[in-house]
């Protein structure tokens, strides 16, 4: 998708291509606004991480974008083709892995399609397995393959690495980064892990009080190094925004 960002852009006349456009979104539970007059734009192919303390409304926002929560006010524009990976893999335990991957695809998709998607996440050898026999990391990768097999223009990730152990998480993060670069879809990653956000995203948003409270561009070359002083600076700044004091950071 060619978007000439260097040309003279007059916002009113030529609308820039967008993967997500949210304007004045409000979602209230029993009168309490969890998402409150929120504005958000994602460019096609952009990787955005959404940080925030638990209960700040970041998961609610993702559910709205996924189309799972329609009790909303405001404008929400999202691509028709969306993929979602939740914190739990949410695979149907009664379907073999490859059938899980193809579930919901229109028509009669070929098994080869699932095999290809599973190969891409490094699970070509578990095509025929039952989901309950997979390890946590494997199940999460199946869930990722299931989201990617429908070639989404927008990939929504709701803390997909939250339940993984530290070693598995590092691999899964790297995998998501690679898949994103290969596929070129826009990604919204909801997480509470600042390091993960800075490692992967073009842009990190901090959500607080139901809106985007802070925005931070990450203009470091990929692959990014945790030891890079600029990385550490961004990380420290974001932690500060999230209310983590420097003393606690050092600990």
């Amino acid at each position: 998708m060619a978007t000439d960002v260097h040309g003279p852009v007059s916002p009113a006349a030529t609308p820039v291509a967008q993967a997500v456009h949210v304007e004045g979104l409000t979602r209230a539970f029993d009168g309490r606004a969890v998402v409150d007059d929120l504005h958000l734009d994602l460019a096609p192919g952009e990787f955005v991480a959404l940080l925030g303390r638990s209960g700040c409304g970041k998961s609610t926002l993702l559910r709205v974008l996924a189309g799972l929560d329609r009790d909303i006010d405001g404008t929400v524009m999202v691509p028709r083709r969306r993929g979602v990976a939740f914190q739990a893999p949410r695979l149907m335990p009664w379907k073999r892995v490859w059938r899980n991957v193809l579930l919901g695809l229109p028509g009669k998709p070929e098994r080869a399609l699932a095999e290809q998607a599973l190969e891409e996440v490094g699970l070509g050898h578990r095509v025929n397995a039952w989901p309950k026999t997979l390890s946590g990391g494997e199940a999460q990768r199946v869930s990722l393959a299931r989201a990617l097999v429908r070639e989404p223009d927008l990939l929504l990730l709701d803390e997909p690495f939250g339940a993984l152990d530290a070693l598995t998480r590092i691999n899964a993060q790297r995998l998501v980064g690679e898949l994103w670069q290969r596929r070129g879809c826009a990604v919204l990653l909801v997480t509470h892990d600042v390091e993960e956000a800075v490692l992967l995203a073009d842009r990190v948003l901090v959500m607080d009080g139901g809106r985007i409270a802070h925005e931070q561009r990450v203009e470091l070359d990929r692959p990014r190094e945790l030891t890079d002083p600029r990385f550490a600076a961004i990380r420290a700044d974001l932690l500060g925004r999230l209310g983590v004091t420097p003393a606690a950071q050092a600990a």
């Binding site: 799972l68 969306r82 739990a88 949410r90 695979l91 149907m92 379907k95 579930l103 919901g104 299931r146």
Partner: peptide
Amino acid sequence: QLIEAGESLGLSRWGLVRHVVLP
């Protein structure tokens, strides 16, 4: 959670019944 996952995959109402609810 599984029903929601099915919805997010674009399953129709009947598809949800057939692939998620009945099994």
